[in-house]
Amino acid sequence: MTSHPPAEGLKVHVLPAPFDPANVTLITQGAEALLYRTTFLAPSTPAALKVRPQKPWRHPTLDKRLTRQRILAEARVLVKCRKEGVPVPGVLGLDWEAGWVVMEWVEGWSVKEAVRGWEKREGARQSEQERGGYEIEGLLRRIGEAVGRLHKAGVVHGDLTTSNMMLRPLGSGGAGQAEESGAGSLEGEVVLIDFGLATQATQEEERAVDLYVLERAFGSTHPRSEGRFGVVLEAYGESYKGAKATLKRLEDVRMRGRKKNSKDYPPAVLLLTDLEGTVAPWPDECDSRTMHDREEKRRVPACLQPYQKAESYTGAGSNPYPPHAK
């Protein structure tokens, strides 16, 4: 297949027909799929070939069904986005039985590279005056707008990171312009890629989680620019009608996340240890620590108690623990 034999124990994936290893170049490999660069329909048209190879450990029938489902879900989302004007690569060809999809090739570089390059240049600057940082805010703004357009179309990406966003030089199609602005430039159109985990969802919660994933991914990939992430959210908030509500929901999602106690967000729930010795955190009878000292040894949980009259509840929300039966 290739000019040199593969390393010991490394299985070379078999490309589905009609593709030939001689005409494709492997770009990257994920857990589920392989991405190649090739040409499609014309020798001068570059294209991205995404192959979901067979998984020999799965039952063949199940494997076929899962491959079919996933490749179709991705293609449907891309076509939908294309119709709604969300900047994504279009689908050029597809074979769900064989497990491949050919998409438009996106020229340019990833947002991750662009931001890293900018951070490096910014770090090299001497004076505080020179460090404005305004250039990057334009890019962050365009990211927010792109995600907003995606969500407006009713699609949730599922894996928003700065490496799943490309910066396509404006007026691309004609090669050569890309060189002028230089790889890693902050200019260009933000194009979203890799919809392998995308779903067509209209729930506010899912959109908020999508933003939360981006927020956390951005913070860990670009810690020096983390403080500017608010610009993304600000642009997002203006991008479609329900955006403000999604941002509100994002606050709830953050509180559930692991970062809830960091300095960035005020803590939502105080830990019991914080309150030790100051205030009794729960009503006495519900406190597990005092329960052992009680006379009554075994207490029946409320859910196993015989039905109580409604009046015994003090009302929704005021006390989550209904009083126990005598």
């Binding site: 891309l78 076509v79 294309r82 119709k83 279009g90 689908v91 050029l92 597809l94």
Partner: peptide, 9 residues
């Protein structure tokens, strides 16, 4: 791009 996509699907 959309036409090609709907043909492919």
């Amino acid at each position: 791009a959309f036409v090609l996509g709907s043909m492919a699907l």
